[in-house]
Design a binder for these strands. Structure first.
Lengths: 214, 214
DNA sequence: CGATAGATTGACCTCATTCAACAGGTGTGG
DNA sequence: CCACACCTGTTGAATGAGGTCAATCTATCG
């Protein structure tokens, strides 16, 4: 199991979790499992479905001609992605860790629902917010803003379970893994963070961190 | 005339120009005039209208706590903006030059039209593309990508009329005006651009420019 | 428990920022 | 219409943050 892009599925019988602001997505659904780096869709493929992250995380990215990868968004548990401006995907989507996705392919009833509009507007806003983060000059500020964003989305302002590597974070924030690592260390040395392994982050002074970024 | 945010209006009698992909916006409309730096809306204000640029250009931006300004989008002649995820504006909007806008306030009939959806998705895509630009490492690449984008949107791949200052460009691309200026000079010295004054740019070698950026 | 990918740290160097001076172009008022 | 003033843009030199290359450490998984 968890083999690559293999869409091995199982069925849940209970009520859907994370129904959130997208009611029509709350029906019981099969879950597709993806291994780390498992491809969900590729640039150029027909965009005919939405996906909700049940557990794990997803990176959405594009490749530059020089081979560099730019991640434009992460999607965490409970979040929905896959909406595109055209008929085909403009980006690649991959799982960053072991990930379960609920797939919704029947949304394209040509009826533009309020929920889809909300999703589009949220995606627009999040992309615009991301511009604000990556355009920040300092590496510390970028990382701090990223951590606060993840903390808020995970619903725990003092403890973060990073679902991605330093490489992913670097490609999301537009900096090298060395700089990402150095920034983590600096925040640790200043007593703002405590690191339990590389993926588990405790925010000791959320206010001080917010001061640096907001 | 052209006084600040003064919404002095006049009426056009002919058919609307730039009807484009937003048919319901193509009715004859009064045009509001804005002077350079004239405020169109401010962050926090109620978002109850869309605007189409008839001539001139608009910058949409947010202020960082340190006072720096980050422009998240420019809107050029024929383009529509003002759609927001919430009930209030998340950003500021100002004219960059003498600008005429058509305002559409009746779109909020609670009916989610296909046109609004298209607009939201286009805005999402453009924000995502902007992420790709600002996250580029090199100043030359950022400026080149910006120039190609503007050229395409203005419909002339060999001549650009910049509707904004070096300060605006810098705040859009996340770099200082000095670096913007140096990048222009470098592209000129390499024979890729010719500058007729600061605002008029001739692209001598579009292919070479595209090679640097795409 | 060992192998290996991921993460950290160090040294060096490039390039954007900063500070500063100067040039050019635009708009205004006489 | 011309001249002056100011704003915008350009160029230079010094500084510093982040990238690059390389070595070491460590956490995780088979």
């Amino acid at each position: 199991m968890f083999a690559g892009t293999h869409t091995q599925t199982h069925h849940r019988s209970g009520p859907a979790i994370n129904s959130g602001a997208v009611p029509f997505l709350s029906r019981v659904r099969p879950i597709s499992l993806f291994a780390p780096d498992g491809e969900i869709y590729a640039q150029g493929e027909t965009a005919d479905a939405l996906y909700r992250v049940e557990f794990g995380a997803v990176r959405v990215y594009r490749l530059h001609t020089d081979g560099r990868r730019q991640i434009v968004a992460f999607y965490l548990a409970g979040e929905t992605f896959g909406l595109e401006a055209g008929r085909t995907h403009s980006f690649f989507a991959e799982a960053t860790v072991h990930t379960g996705l609920a797939r919704f392919s029947s949304f394209a009833g040509e009826v533009v629902t309020q929920e889809l509009m909300t999703l589009a507007l949220q995606s627009m806003l999040h992309a615009q917010e991301h511009i604000l983060v990556v355009s920040r000059q300092s590496a510390i500020e970028k990382l701090g803003a990223f951590l606060l964003d993840v903390a808020e989305r995970q619903g725990d302002l003092e403890h973060i379970d990073l679902q991605m590597t330093r490489v992913d974070i670097g490609e999301y924030l537009g900096m090298t893994i060395e700089t990402v690592s150095r920034s983590f260390s600096k925040l640790r040395d200043e007593g703002i963070l405590r690191l339990h392994g590389a993926k588990s982050v405790e925010i000791l002074q959320p206010a001080k961190l917010a001061l640096l970024c907001k």
